[in-house]
Design a protein around this nucleic acid. Structure first.
Lengths: 230, 230, 230, 230
DNA sequence: AATGAATGAGTCTTCATTCAT
DNA sequence: AATGAATGAAGACTCATTCAT
């Protein structure tokens, strides 16, 4: 006979497994119908458990969603390493690139969660919104500090670092969202990283001094002093 | 005595005014509570009209929301001019900058709507999501074509134009969202335009050949040809 | 200039005409959608008047309906003459037949009202139901008394006169309802009268003594005096 | 301990029982207030269950009503046997009488449903009206065919059989309705059957040739040639 | 631990009726 | 007298959550 700890009704799973089963079902339902359209009924039907069982493992609908988002944001958090500016073994640029790469890899590995994070996470309820904002702020804060460090080192251009952080995060979010939502799906993490990195490094506009008008001429001139635009 | 056209019950407004009154109230309620938390009761209370009056002007909650978003997206659409590549009087770069500037101006003028567009519009219901996606796709498509034109002209760097469009739109969206949500509010449209434009023009990473490691070295060399080999 | 009494806004009708206009519209709406499905909006739209105007002429929805039914039941009441048993100039049978004929004529002339009376009048509300029952009871009562008189005269068979009245009224109602609802419509009042009258006179079952089995044999025998006197 | 199948929460009933409980409550409420006056609240209050419970078992108010009517009309349908004209063991007349008797018995056993069928079933909504008409048509059709057979056999008088069917059904309906509604309640199914049967067999008007006037004289004469007016 | 019937608060929506112009 | 915008009471319905077994 099985030990007391592991003995269980046929069909019953260990607590953790059952929880995971519901979590996975919930993720799929949320992805398919959206958080607000999804009902507890949809979730338990997908998980193949009774309605009451759901409440044995989660406080309420929000709690499952929160759990999913928490796990995913934890994965993202883990993927990001704080940039060390004086590590002789790893150039700052490589660290930055690795961070971007890691984030993209996580998102491509969890396409469903990525989509949910971007489409459903906002507007769940005031409390959750605050929590989500905190997470975003953390990411932005980290990036802002790194950018400030980078400016000290002279490897990040002048400009309000927080604004640069928003631009960066925004570009990355939209890229990931589209890749994950549409069929841009084939893109590898490497290619996407390369595209974003290049974008952050040099932008894409190549408007010469004469074309830019007075507003942009001065700046451009500094970078290409050899007389020619481009 | 008022003319026949304008004579009306005290407290009664012309149809268009009453509609606008409800629309404004709804906008504020949505902004404050979020689309899903908002109830018809909240809206009519804010508008100071009876429940039934709401249904005289709108089909349901979704319809008011849709109207608001439609108006706002129409404003944005109007603000954007298709870029003409061979207009001798207006440089392409200026046209691009003007577009960015116009979008930012509209969003700063309608902070509430901007926030709603970014936080509440997704996940309302499948039909609305589709509609919204269509709008975004239109914007992205326009930008993509402009970028492709720019590549032909040699004023936009190589790269998948659609990806560049996503990066641009993402950066802009996030910037606007944060400006509108947080107190970054003081920023003028001009300053924001300048920051985004500069970002699109040159990025911000300035990692030299030696620092970039093998992965990035070759590319960087292209931009500093003064004596450097590729 | 028209006198004060008759002067009226262009398009305005005399009170009675306007009332009739609404009444007719209401009748058609009730006939088409049924009392409960019909809304005041339907009625005013059909009448081509404003919503408020309706309430200038009728207390509420029930009141128009009641008015319609009242007028119709009055027509029916008028059509029925109390049978006089000792009128030398008109045989009782002729009087009965004339009554039937008159009722059928009224119903055929007002098919819409006839249908409404049978399908919508019951279940409007408790008060109206009572009123309707009173009308029916009046008709049944009159008929019952006539039948009782007839029994005294020997021209109506034995049997509980009230039951005979119900049977008669039921047969007539169903006949009229079907004629009016379906396309049995071509039937003339004369033919229908004839059919009902014959039914009341001799029924239609012609089961002989031997076929009727023991239960019916005795009774049948009475009518086929071949051997038995009454 | 109860078996797995029957074990249930205290107060909870087996699904079928709970459904029946609501059905019964609904029947009583409909009978008392009428279909249109009845609210879901009335029904759940009568059933002693929560609002939501109602919706666990029925789609909406119409659905309960439909179920009730369906069950009752099924009872009636079952009660009626198609008449077989060449069964040597059962005379046609007996079969007819048995059908009438069976219908009356069912209606007397379910007085509430009988009343509802006649007062509330019409005018519920267009779809239901159609369904009800179909049921009535089925009954009338069956009867019509039987009458046609009877005419072939010579045991049903001449005349449009469909009209005779309407007359019969109408008479029966009204009789049942009054018996069930008023206190005519004591009547036994046997007596009522007998009354209706006699009515169908010989009518009740006994107007002699001389009294009937020219219109009816000829016909009457054929049936009672032995000089008697009755 | 699992079940699923039962619950009822929370919303939406309709529509008869009012009333200032 | 006529209008029609406004009203809000009345009811329907959903669905997250509970709880006895």
């Amino acid at each position: 006979m099985a030990s007391r700890r592991t003995r269980r009704k046929s069909g019953a799973l260990a607590k953790a497994e059952r929880r995971q089963q519901i979590l996975t079902a919930a993720r799929d339902v949320f992805a398919k119908r959206g958080y607000h359209q999804a009902t507890i009924d949809d979730i338990v039907a997908a998980a193949g458990v009774a309605r009451g069982t759901f409440y044995l493992y989660f406080e309420d609908k929000r709690a499952v969603f929160e759990d999913l988002i928490d796990r995913f944001s934890a994965q993202l958090t883990v993927a990001i390493s704080r940039i060390v500016i004086d590590d002789p073994s790893r150039a700052v640029a490589d660290q930055a690139r690795d961070n971007i790469h890691a984030i993209i890899r996580v998102c491509l590995a969890e396409r469903t969660m990525t989509k949910m994070l971007f489409t459903d996470a906002a507007g769940v309820d005031p409390g959750f919104d605050r929590k989500l904002a905190t997470f975003y702020d953390g990411v932005v804060q980290l990036l802002t500090e790194s950018l400030r460090d980078g400016q000290t080192l002279g490897i990040v251009a002048d400009g309000e670092p927080r604004v640069l952080a928003y631009l960066t995060v925004g570009a990355l979010k939209e890229l990931l969202f589209q890749v994950v939502t549409l069929g841009l799906a084939e893109e590898s993490a490497e290619v996407l990283t390369q595209q974003l990195f290049r974008f952050l490094s040099e932008g894409y506009l190549r408007v010469g001094a004469n074309e830019m008008g007075k507003r942009g001429a001065a700046r451009r001139a500094k970078r290409a002093p050899a007389g020619g635009s481009r």
